[in-house]
């Protein structure tokens, strides 16, 4: 093989590896073992207050209405299944929304933190997305930072009497983008660049993951709006129950 042929071969191998083998990958779940020990512990500890708040809230909800436990379980299962759904013909690889933003808008962010950590644990063990030692970091970015931002954006925009669907789009898309920023920061803090330190590293990680994550945020926003339109026309009573 000539040098160019070799290069072409290598390139096609990498391409096949990235887009062929990994049909169902969440690029943004930090994989098992990727973070050093201290980072695993610190991100895990940072999640604790949110999880405790969520746990207390769930306990209260369940004490008041037993039935809500089943509804919450269904939402957890829904988030898991939605993340497993493929969205064909958008990119070569499959991309899928996380659904946590919509969940936060519907159920409140602290509840989503608890549901999120359970779903992330299931994703690690049943789908091999994410990991056990990186569970803390992934929970912080996907089940806490994103949903809390989504919820905040939704509430603030609603205050200004902006159309509900616009709010849902902005909340879920921004929540997704925020999750992606937090994950980049987490990775950069773990592996600062030799030249330029953490700052340069954040830029590098964001650049690398922007390819999949920016279109995904817009897609998540659009899909959340489609789901919301459907819910508004078919599930008015359920939505009223949720105080949406």
């Amino acid at each position: 093989m000539t040098k160019n042929e070799k290069r072409l071969f290598m390139f096609s191998c990498v391409f096949a590896l990235v887009f062929g083998v990994t049909q169902t990958t969440f690029a943004m779940h930090i994989m098992e073992g990727y973070l050093p020990k201290t980072h695993c512990v610190v991100w895990g500890v940072l999640c604790l207050p949110f999880l405790t708040a969520g746990f207390i809230r769930i306990k209260k909800i369940v004490n008041d209405h037993r039935k809500t436990l089943l509804l919450l379980a269904m939402v957890g299962a829904y988030a898991f299944v939605l993340s497993a759904l493929k969205l064909p013909s958008v990119t070569g690889s499959s991309s899928h929304p996380t659904g946590t933003g919509l969940g936060a808008v519907l159920f409140g962010p602290s509840v989503m933190a608890v549901l999120g950590i359970i779903v992330l644990l299931f994703q690690a063990i049943l789908l091999a997305h994410g990991g056990l030692t990186t569970l803390g970091a992934n929970t912080f970015s996907m089940a806490i930072a994103g949903p809390f931002l989504s919820f905040g954006v939704y509430k603030i925009l609603r205050k200004f009497n902006i159309n509900k669907l616009v709010c849902v789009f902005a909340a879920t898309a921004l929540g997704d983008l925020f999750t992606y920023c937090i994950t980049s920061v987490q990775l950069a803090l773990a592996y600062p660049s030799d030249v330029g330190g953490v700052g340069a590293s954040v830029v590098k990680f964001m650049a690398v993951f922007a390819v999949t994550q920016v279109p995904l945020a817009v897609i998540e926003g659009i899909l959340s709006v489609i789901v919301m339109i459907g819910l508004e026309s078919y599930a008015k009573p359920e939505l009223a129950e949720l105080d949406y």
Binding site: H129, Y191, S201
Partner: peptide, 12 residues
Amino acid sequence: IPALFIVLSIAA
């Protein structure tokens, strides 16, 4: 399964 993540993040 983690190949895409490892390729992208190792590149960074």
